[in-house]
Each structure stands twice: as C-alpha cells, then as structure tokens.
Design a protein around this nucleic acid. Structure first.
Lengths: 407, 407
DNA sequence: GTGAGTTTGTTGTTTGAATTGACAATTTAC
DNA sequence: GTAAATTGTCAATTCAAACAACAAACTCAC
C-alpha cells in the first residue's frame, strides 16, 4: 500500500454495536432538539420499528438520559403514545471566559440554564488564573446540584482561536494568550471531560439549537462583540476546519483600506464594522447590548447615522461574500450586528444583493439572532451535549453528584 | 409536535441492511481511492473481521464491481493475501460542456480515462443543442464499449451555477442560460442517471481523487479559466450549500474597485485576477494552458511582470480570506492561477501570510494542481462514482452493454 | 353506553450481518 | 525440515432489528 495515502477514521466499518449506538444517538438527538416526543413520533421520525424504539428508549431510560410519562390531553384516535423526555438530572457546565469576567452555568439536556455564577476577571488574566477561576465557579455550582445529578462535562467558550482536538487556545488577542493548554488544565482540576471552542462558533451552535436557526441546517452566523466573529453550520454539522480555526469570518479582507482589526489584519470586515466606532459617534463610554441597540435606534445625530450607514454597507459586502461562498439557508446577525440590521434593514439587504450572485441570494434569509443573555451558556453546553449525543452509552462513565436521589 | 421543526433525513434510524450497505460502501470507497488492496489490508483498514471482509468482497464480486487476483511478489511471512481490485468493466460517462466545445469521456472506477470524444459547439449554444451534442457523443462512445461493460451514469461539468439536486443549470453566463433543465433532458435522451455540478467544484473533486489533494480531506481549490471558480472539500465531503451553489470563490469581493467580473459583481477576486489581462499584456490573442504558462514564465516585459504582480497580490488576498474562513490543510491553485503561482511563489505566499491569521496559516500548504488535460473528465466521472460508492448494490439496476462478455 | 375502528404497546419468534473459534493453507525464518 | 506467522474458510454463535399476533387504550357514530 502507498503509505502516503493512509486510510482515515471514516474508512472504518461498522458492526452491530455501532448500529445500536447510532440509533440511540438518533433518538437522543431528536429529543435534544424537540424536548419531548412520543414514542410514536420517534417511530415515524426514525423509520424504525415500534419494537425497536421501545427497546432503544428502555436502554436510554436505564442510562438515565430520558424518562417516560403519560401523554396529557387528547391526541386523536387510537391508544395514546407514551411521551419520552430528556432527563433533568443530566447537566453540563458551560464556561465563558470573556475579557471582563468569567461566567459558568449549569445547563441541562434541553438547553435550559439552571444556574449561573459570574466572577470578574483580574487584569492581565493568565491562562492558569482563568482556569482556576472557572474551576472555582464549577465547584461552587456543583455543590448546589441536586443529589444524583449526572454531569457529562464542561464546555468552554473562548474569544480566540482554539485547537479544538487538543483543547489548546492557540491565540486569544484579548488576553494575549498564545498556546495556552486551557482544556487539559481544566480537565485536570475539575476531573471532568472538557471541550473548548471559539465563542462565536458556539454562539452559532446556540442559535441553531435553541434560537433563530432551529429550522435550518445550512447556517452562516456573524457575531459583533468587541470584534466580529463567525460560525458556520453545513448540513447540520459545525464547520471546524483542519485544526479547529475555521469560520474566522470577521477577518476576511473586503476592502483596500489599511485600517487594522484586533488581530492586526487590514481592510477586514472587523476593521470596518466596529463597536468602538459606534460608541464614539454615540458619545458613549460603555454600554451593554441593550443600551447600545437602544442608542442606535433612537439617535438623531447625522454623524452617527452616517457611520451606521458606512458600517452597514461593509456588513452587506461581508454577508454577500459569505452567501457566495456557502450558499446557506440563513444568515444570522447577532450582537451589535443585529442592532445595525434593525437600524436599516433595507440598506443592508440592498448592499448584500448588489454583491452576491443572483442564484445564491434568492433562497437565503437574513435575520437577527434571538438569544442574548444565555447565548454562550447554551452554546458552550452544546459541546459536551453533542459528545453525549454522538455516544449516548458513554454516560455510564460520567460522575454522579454525591448523595442519593429519590428513585 | 411543533410542525416548524421537522425531523430531517439525518434523523432516520438504521437497520441491518443499512449496516451492510455502509460496509460495502466503505470497501468500495477504499478501493476507489487506493486502486488495489489485499483482503488483509481491507481488514485492518476497516477494522472488520476477516470473515466479514470475505463476505463483503464476495458480494461486490457478484455485483461485478470488483475482482480478485493472486498477489504477486513477496509480502512477508504468512499466507499471502488475495488482492482485490476495482473492475475495469464498470464505467461512467463524463461530459464537459465548455464554451467552445463539448467533450465526453469514458472513465472507469479507477479514474482512468479510457476514451474521449470532442465536438466544437456552435455559436449561441442552446441548452437543447448542448444536451443533443452530449448525447450524440455518448452514443458514439457507447458503441465502442466492450460487451458486458456496465455503465453507472453520466457526470456533467457546467461552467455556471447548478441546482445540483434537480439537475438544473440555474445560471451559466458563458451561454446565457437561465434555469436550463440540463440534467432531466439528458437523462431522458440517454436513459442513464445524470449528475451535474459546477466545473470548478468538479475540478476540486478530481484533484482530491487523483491529483495533488489525494492526501488531504480539508481542501480549498481555486481554478483560473475564463473566470475564477472554486471548490471546497470539508472533512472529505464536497461543500455544496443549501441548493448547490456554494463555493463561488471567485465572486468574493476583496477590494473597493468597481471593475466588474463575468457575473457583473465588482471588486471581486475574479475581477482582479483575469486571464484576458494576462493575454493582453503578453500580446497574445489566444493560448492554451501550456502556452500561456510558458509565456508567463519567459516574458521579459516589465508591463507584463507588473500586471502579474498585481494579480498575484489580489490572489494572495483571496487565498488568505479562504484560509481564514475554512482553515484547510491545503489550497490548490489550478489553471492560470497555477502559472501565476509558479511565476512568483514567494510574493504570493508573502501576500497570503500578510492577510491571514497566524494560526490558520501555519499548517496549510499552497500548491499547484497536477491534473490538466483530464481534469474535468475525472471530476465529472466522480459524481456517478460517488453515487455508486454510497449505494453499491444500486449497480444491479444499471444497464449493461449488449453482447456477452467472456466470464 | 356500546361496539366498531384506529393507533400504540408488548411478547415471542424470526432474520441476517458480524463475530468467534477451530482448522487448513501458504508463506518466511532458522 | 520444522516452527512461527499470517490469511482463508467453515460451522456455530450472537444480538439488534423486524415481524406477527394480540392486548390496551383511545375516538367516534349510533
């Protein structure tokens, strides 16, 4: 065999166990998206036999991932079907290490944020300190969990480029981190499986699971915060790239300008569409999302409105480029990009249409994101949840909180 | 159930038949990539049992997709393993409807082009005429096929945007076609399964299967012909987008210029990196690939070299953008883009590095394409071949050429 | 209220793809 | 020539999904 052409993981064959795991995975995935489904609905969605669904659900019940309940209300003729729901006793920790503060949340399998804790970050936050803070908050929340709660892992959202497979933060400009092994360190402290990814990519996952993009499977997502980040979902799967750095949509060069963005690249979308300029023309020192949006939508200043128009035009080019490249079903604008969108939707769409191919633009919708406060909590929790969905029986190795739950 | 959240195809469960088909598919896919493998190699690559591989190969042999032969030469200790190869009796037709001519080829499962036929296109080629010409050439070649040859379908490369699922050419600027149902028409005439896609996307597939990108599974491909087209492979799978228009990488706006490209978009990569300008500064009226490359590499004209530099700088920006977006393992430059790359590789790489993120650029290689003459023959044939790989047992429904083959 | 019709859950049986174990075949190494 | 190693083959086993038959629980028409 030519040793330069090695067979990859996808060349593996499948046996009966893989078949079973796949079907378990399919059921868990459906329940995660839909919350509660009847066994009859699972049967028709999966195309599997009644008996098989019955067995699969029984196994998931034994694993503690789902529970069954009687259907309430009328459902039509015939024997009412048993309802299957995600267990509330299975949770993931979500960590968002942002510039100003670290937030940790407890999220259940339905994407509900059960608890949250926040601690401000010190200046010059080092990776070690960041991991320590995250772990402290995890310990704090873990103590409050009901006895018998099963923890499937920790998902971490980082404002920077992440080597996903190894859990290494390759470069986080906000903290000036280079090659910080955040994942392995937090794993060692917390003794839990840790998954890390870029914050914007996780925002995209959140909108797909619980937000504006639930209906879609080909999604381009742009988030405007300090900088501009992005996420992409293709055929239901997150775009990660060879090493996990993909979907840096803010760093696409769209003009000849030599204005720098936060990573030092010139003429990029992030260099043209920027929150700091919005604050400046609005005369604001600082503002949260809602305050900024209110100011944008209410200002009468011509200077400010002119700046909005400039930024909207640049955003239109950025969106057009991404539509030409990805031909998505939907483009989600989040953060202050959603505010710009609301300020002058027509202008944005006109600019977008001017710069994208007719065919690609005709079936795409551009809409604002829906999630705000819990965006990154939900997004980060998706990482361990997706891992659970891919291999449901792995849950039997996960730790259980001390104490005994009433059965 | 919320009817706005319908379960999709990927929510289907799997049964034993799907399991079998998947394993057959895995074996065929390996053989397509590697040509010939021993049963022992198949066993270790797939992780399946010896007995299972034996059964799978026997079934594929019965389907006529593979054949077995004794291993030649020494292979080490132990009983020598039986070699398994792709059958030479199974072929696909490849159609390339280009501006000046239509080319049809016969390609076997190993990606070898067995025969080729070409006919110039008349001016103002209509879709009906194009289909007629393609079908004539198919009939011509079909008559020459050895008796007993099995035909799995037709793959068509079109210079334009294609609604892949429906086989409709949405827009082909070279022919001024709009919504031409090329696929259904050719299917009706030829009575064969027809698959259509954009030519650059198929060039990408070809380089992945038989060319420079064989080793990689995350690939960005740029082709410079009349215009600039692109193709993307993510984790071994072609990027198609929601309707099939994805990877229009030439139409990404990279500057403030208002120069139009062939689709009327301004400031795009295609508007800046253009063959016609190269020909002009070189004083050429027309040239094939090799002539153009020779002229580029040998000219002493300062005006020409200055134009090359301008185009290379634009190409550097384009490549940087794509690396930021996709984080691929490799970027393949094909057509005259490969010639520009060869003209001044350092300048291109320097420009690319200036405009891409450090992390994303550090593990990517930029290389020229390797396939030339048969690029689109191989690429187009990949469409029916991929369909066969996905569902190997479907071959039993495929037509056989008349006559009886010696068994 | 009753019975017909409909849909779902359950139980026991069947099916078939992959695996296992035992043994034969064929090579290399000494 | 014999031992060790690797591969092919056959019979038996395993087990996830499907199937068939029946029971359970509902709606609807009367």
């Amino acid at each position: 065999m030519q040793n330069s052409l090695l067979p990859t993981e996808s060349d593996r064959g499948r046996n009966r166990e893989d078949l079973r795991e796949h079907n378990l995975s399919t059921v868990v995935g459906l329940l995660h998206r839909f919350g509660t489904l009847s066994r009859a609905q699972l049967t028709s969605s999966t195309g599997l036999n009644r008996t098989t669904i019955s067995n699969l659900v029984a196994e998931l019940k034994a694993l503690g991932i789902v529970f069954e309940s009687q259907s309430v209300g009328t459902t039509g003729v015939g024997r009412p079907s048993v309802m299957v729901s995600m267990s509330g006793d299975v949770v993931a920790f979500a960590v968002n290490t942002a510039f100003d503060a670290t937030t940790v949340g407890v999220v259940n399998l339905l994407g509900q944020v059960l608890m949250k804790a926040r601690r401000p970050n010190p200046a010059n936050l080092s990776p070690v300190m960041a991991v320590q803070i995250a772990n402290d908050l995890i310990i704090h929340l873990r103590a409050k969990l009901a006895p018998g709660t099963r923890i499937i892992g920790v998902g971490v959202a980082i404002p920077g480029q992440v080597k996903v497979a190894e859990g290494i933060v390759r470069f986080a400009p906000a903290f000036k981190w280079i090659n910080a092994p955040f994942g392995p360190m937090l794993n060692k402290l917390s003794n839990l499986p840790v998954f890390i990814d870029n914050d914007a990519s996780l925002g995209c996952l959140a909108e797909r699971t619980m937000g504006s993009a639930r209906k879609y499977k080909d999604i381009v997502y742009l988030f405007g915060g300090t900088g501009v980040g992005g996420g992409v979902v293709i055929d239901g799967k997150q775009l990660r790239g060879a090493t996990g750095y993909a979907s840096e949509l803010g760093h696409v060069r769209i003009s000849d300008s030599d204005v720098e963005d936060h990573s030092g690249l010139v003429g990029t979308l992030e260099s043209a569409v920027r929150r700091d300029n919005l604050l400046k023309v609005l005369g604001l020192k600082a503002a949260n999302e809602d305050e900024l949006e209110a100011a944008i939508l209410s200002t009468e200043s011509q200077e400010a409105r002119s700046e909005f128009h400039t930024q909207i035009d640049a955003l239109g080019v950025g969106v057009a480029n991404l539509v030409n490249i990805f031909n998505p079903q939907v483009v989600i604008l989040s953060g202050f990009l959603a505010s710009l969108f609301k300020f002058d939707q027509e202008r944005l769409l006109a600019g977008f249409q001017m710069h994208s191919l007719v065919a690609s633009q005709e079936e795409v919708v551009v809409i604002p994101g829906r999630l705000n406060a819990n965006l990154l909590m939900i997004g980060a929790s998706e990482l361990p949840i997706q891992a659970l969905i891919e291999a449901p029986s792995s849950i039997s190795h996960m730790p259980l909180t001390k104490g005994r739950k009433k059965s």
